[in-house]
Every structure is written in C-alpha cells, then in structure tokens.
C-alpha cells in the first residue's frame, strides 16, 4: 500500500512539541553539563568532563543519593508490584464489590503528592501520629518508631508512602492483563491437575509478563523521580538519609546555583534509569511465552 507523502506532515506538530519540550531541554542539559554555568549569569566557562569527574569521584553526597535511590527503588518495585498483583487477583472478577474495591485502591493515585505528603507526615509523627498510637493500643510499643526522623529507616518509611500512593494505578494494569488471559488455559491446567502455584507460574505469570514489564519499568522510573513526596516529607533529611538523585539535582541547581554540575548529574541520572530499565526489559522478556 502506498502511503501519501502528505501523511508525514501530520507528524510535524507532534515532532515540534516533542522537540521543544523534550529534545531541546535534553540537549541543553547535555551542553550545560560541560560548563560551570550558575543558572543566572550570561557568562560561563567550559570545564570539559570536570563535572562528571566530580560526580563520580569527588562527591560523597551524590554517591549517597544513588544508594538511597536504589534502596527506595528496590523496596517500591518489589513491594508495590507484589501488592498490586495480589490485590489485582483478589478483585479480578467484575462484581459490584470488586469494582468498588478497585476504585478504592485507585483513589490515592488521584490525590496530589503534597496532600499525600501532608497526610503521611501526620501519620508518621512520632508523638501525635496515628501509626505509633495504633501500635501502642495494640500493645506493640516495641514497634513504635521515629519513622521519618531515624536515618536508618526514613527512606523505607517514604517507600511505604510511595507504595500506598501508586499501587492502585499498577493494580489497574494488572487487572487488565489478567482479564486478557483466556479462561480455557486455566481449564486445561485444571484438567491436567496443576496446583494453584503451578497454574500461576506456568500460565498466569508468563502471559502477564507484558503487563508486568510495563508495571516494573514504570514503577522504577516513578521511584527514581519521586521528587515531590521526598521534598515535601523530609527534604532529604535527616543527614541526607532520604536525599535521592532528583532532590539532590534540585539542591545543586536551585540552592547552590550550580546548573552546570546539576546538568551533569541529570545526564548521569538519565543513564542510570535507562540502564536499569534496559536490564529489567531483558530479564522480563526471557519470561514471556505465548500459547
């Protein structure tokens, strides 16, 4: 079939917007990453790979933020995916109760991140917070914590909030994926005498792999970019224990007025996300089968 050349003109508006809002900032960030631009002055100097050298070898806070981000990402990806999948299987059938529950689980996703941060900061407050009070009422005083003030656990407390915030969104993707699996495959598995685990492992999971790939990749990117929640709940503290790459870029650019260096961290950030997402796609692709 011959496609008319005029059809390519329809790409132009999209390409135009994409160039303005994505390509231009990306190329600019790459350009400024080789400079010492402060973000304000007209003048700047080229510093070669100096900014990258500093980030990779001479900036202990940046290294710490990468570690924090990996901890945060691992916890969110593992537990958010598991929680979303488990709830999706529970509310799979289109009954009235399940439709209500799906809406209920999805509800946090529509809240603004600042509202979520405010609600959870109150929940986590060591003296007035409802979490410690409930633990106290249940006689579980030994579990009471300084959830956001203890540098050993603060990043995990934030991860729990992130999971609560976004698990409902992933649940919907899993429900769609699960509902697309043909019912007769389960009937065959049943006739063959497969256990529930075997059915899940050999039927459900492989056919759910495309949805899982989307969920895991999206959750990974989302957890790297959880700027607003972290910024509003802890501001990266205490003692940089919740500082993640996105909040650090903000600090370097807008508090230290070092746009050149912040741009180089942004480029490294992009590379890290791309690399991890690539690994995930590779790993999950090997799990895919078709019947």
């Amino acid at each position: 079939m011959r496609i008319s050349k005029t059809i390519y003109l329809f790409f132009l508006p999209g390409l135009f917007l994409y160039s303005i809002f994505f390509l231009y900032p990306t190329v600019s960030a790459l350009f400024y990453s080789f400079t010492d631009w402060d973000g304000l002055s007209d003048a700047y100097q080229f510093v070669g790979i100096g900014n990258y050298e500093r980030a990779l070898t001479g900036d202990s806070v940046f290294r710490k933020t990468v570690g924090n981000n990996l901890k945060f990402m691992l916890m969110v990806v593992i537990f958010q995916t598991l929680a979303a999948l488990a709830f999706a299987m529970i509310v799979l059938k289109n009954t009235k109760t399940n439709l209500f529950l799906r809406a209920l689980y999805f509800f946090p996703t529509i809240l603004s991140s600042v509202s979520v941060a405010f609600i959870w900061s109150f929940i986590y407050d060591p003296s007035l917070g409802i979490l410690n009070q409930i633990l106290g009422l249940l006689g579980l005083d030994f579990l009471q914590q300084n959830w956001l003030g203890n540098s050993d656990i603060a990043i995990y407390s934030l991860a729990i909030t992130q999971i609560w915030f976004h698990a409902g969104q992933m649940l919907i993707i899993f429900v769609a994926g699960l509902q697309a699996i043909p019912e007769d495959l389960y009937e065959v598995a049943k006739i063959e005498g497969a256990s529930k685990w075997q059915t899940f492992r050999k039927v459900t999971w492989p056919l759910l792999a495309p949805s899982a790939t989307i969920v895991i990749a999206y959750t990974t990117i989302q957890s790297f970019k959880a700027f607003d929640l972290v910024f509003a709940m802890t501001g990266g503290g205490p003692n940089n224990s919740t500082e993640i790459i996105a909040t650090y870029i903000f600090d370097v650019a807008f508090r230290s007025y070092n746009f050149g260096y912040a741009s180089s961290i942004s480029v490294l950030f992009m590379i890290i996300i791309a690399f991890i997402t690539f690994l995930q796609f590779k790993a999950l692709r090997s799990d895919r089968i078709s019947y």
Partner: peptide, 12 residues
C-alpha cells in the same frame, strides 16, 4: 529536648 526530636515538625 523531646524524644524523637528529628521527627518533630514545627507545628508539633
């Protein structure tokens, strides 16, 4: 200073 001071907000 109060216990868990690093988790205490200015409002609290």
């Amino acid at each position: 200073i109060q216990p868990d001071a690093l988790g205490t907000s200015q409002d609290s």
